[in-house]
């Protein structure tokens, strides 16, 4: 689950940590540097990204554009409801 967003946060990330391979593309190319490697491992033994500074996340989805494993994507809070409605059909 995502942390309680502060007023500054405009978006968040959604992560499927089990298919992450820890390539760190999202961590290195995040424009606001809000991601970091997790301390613990996923089932395959990789460190996955966590939202270390949730107040900086803008939900720009550049992490989702870089992710080679389709594990992470960013979403703006104003688009969350639209995405949640789309999800069951997908």
């Amino acid at each position: 689950m995502v942390d309680e967003p502060t007023k500054k946060a405009k978006g968040t990330i959604i992560l499927n940590k089990e298919i992450c391979k820890g390539c760190s593309f999202c961590i290195d190319f995040c424009p606001t540097h809000c991601l970091e490697f997790s301390k613990d491992f996923n089932r395959k033994g990789y460190h996955y990204p966590v939202l270390a500074r949730p107040e900086d996340c803008t939900g720009c989805d550049l992490c989702g554009l870089y992710c080679p494993d389709y594990a992470i994507f960013g979403v703006k809070f104003k688009d969350l409801e639209k995405l949640a409605q789309k999800a069951p059909a997908a």
Binding site: C23, F25, P68, D69, L83, K86
Partner: peptide, 27 residues
């Protein structure tokens, strides 16, 4: 419960794919 919007375009039974960590083909 939210799913990556790209997932409908992929055969999900084959994900995760075999490409190495750091490979650019997935991107």
């Amino acid at each position: 419960e939210l799913q990556n919007p790209l997932m409908p375009y992929l055969r999900q039974d084959r994900i995760p794919h075999i490409w190495c960590p750091g490979c650019g083909i997935g991107t």
